[in-house]
Amino acid sequence: MTGEETSFQTSLQARAEAQGGVVLTAQARAEGWARGRLSRFLAAGGWTRVRHGAWLVPGREVGPVELLWTHQLLRPELVVSHWSAAMLHGVGVGAGAGPPSGRPDFICSGPAAVKGATLHRLPLAPGEVTVVAGLRTTTVARTMADLLRAGPRDDALIAVDSALSWRHGRGSGPPGSRGRPLTTLDEIGRALTTAPSIRGAATAAWWLAMADPRSGSPAETLARLRIHDAGLHPETQAMLVVPATGRRVYPDFLFRPQGLAVETEGYTWHGSRSQHQRDVIRFNDLAACPEVRRILRFTTADVYHRPDMMIRDIRGALAG
Rank of each mutant, 00 (worst) to 15 (best):
F8H: 10
F8L: 12
L12I: 13
L12S: 12
T25Q: 07
R29D: 03
R37W: 09
L38I: 07
L42G: 08
G45V: 00
G46R: 15
W47Y: 11
R49F: 00
R51H: 04
R51E: 14
P58N: 07
G63L: 02
P64R: 15
R75L: 10
R75I: 02
V79K: 03
S81V: 10
L88D: 06
G92V: 15
P100D: 10
S101E: 08
I107G: 00
G110W: 13
A117G: 09
R121Q: 11
P126H: 06
E128Y: 06
A133C: 03
V140H: 09
T143V: 07
D155V: 09
D155S: 14
D155G: 02
D155K: 04
A156M: 04
A159E: 05
V160F: 03
V160N: 06
R170K: 13
S172Y: 13
G173S: 12
G176K: 10
P181R: 06
T183N: 12
T184L: 01
T184M: 01
D186C: 01
R199F: 01
A205L: 03
L208K: 12
L208G: 05
A209F: 01
A209D: 08
A219G: 15
T221P: 15
T221R: 13
L222I: 03
R224M: 02
R224D: 05
L225H: 06
D229I: 05
G231D: 03
Q237A: 05
A238M: 11
A244L: 14
F253C: 04
F255P: 05
P257L: 08
P257V: 11
E263S: 03
W269R: 14
G271C: 02
G271S: 09
Q275N: 11
H276M: 11
D279A: 14
V280S: 01
A287E: 06
P290T: 11
V292C: 08
R293H: 15
R293C: 04
R297G: 03
T300V: 14
A301F: 11
D302L: 02
I311C: 07
I311M: 09
R312N: 11
D313L: 13
R315E: 14
A317D: 05
A319F: 07
A319G: 04
